[in-house]
């Protein structure tokens, strides 16, 4: 388990079965709502997590359905000038082979072709997207902060 002190809201452990993705989406939206994210941000956060999970199933586990994935949801804060901004941190862990971090940039959208949109949707939704490999674990950290203008509950 990664170091996640304080602010832990929810932990989910699931198998890499695509049929379970809807269960995660079903948990994320109300969690983001409870933290005060606006409806568009709730949808984009849910989409980012769903796309990240899909990438794990497809690329990290090569569509094997019985591999472990763990998600940690944590409430975080950051100081900007005199104000404190709240946010949601999601850490997705899998035990697949090491992934080239360079592949986490997504593709350009100027070409009309299927595939490769997931990473773009993740980057579009989140304020931070960080990939690390620790031991035998791939760790994708996603962070979204509540913005004063965009999240009016």
């Amino acid at each position: 388990m990664p170091r996640l002190r304080g602010g832990l809201l929810l932990t989910m452990a699931l198998y890499s079965n695509p049929r379970l993705l809807s269960a995660v989406r079903g948990a994320v939206e109300p969690l983001a709502e409870a933290l005060g994210f606006s409806a568009p941000h709730r949808r984009s956060i849910t989409r980012a997590i769903d796309e990240a999970l899909t990438n794990i199933v497809r690329h990290s586990y090569s569509n094997q359905r019985d591999r472990p994935i763990t998600l940690y949801f944590r409430k975080i804060r950051r100081r900007i000038g005199d104000s404190i901004e709240q946010g949601l941190e999601i850490v997705l862990c899998d035990r697949g082979p090491a992934i080239d971090p360079g592949k986490f940039r997504g593709r350009a959208l100027d070409e009309i072709r299927p595939g490769g949109l997931g990473l773009h949707l993740i980057h579009e939704a989140m304020d931070k997207v960080e990939f690390t490999r620790k031991g035998r674990t791939n760790r994708l950290r996603l962070v979204k902060y509540l913005s004063e203008t965009g999240d009016d509950v």
Partner: peptide, 16 residues
């Protein structure tokens, strides 16, 4: 209610 990038990719394949 929800569509992900693989759903969009399916529509793009249909379009092509």
């Amino acid at each position: 209610r929800y569509i992900d990038s693989s759903g969009v990719a399916s529509l793009v394949e249909g379009l092509k």
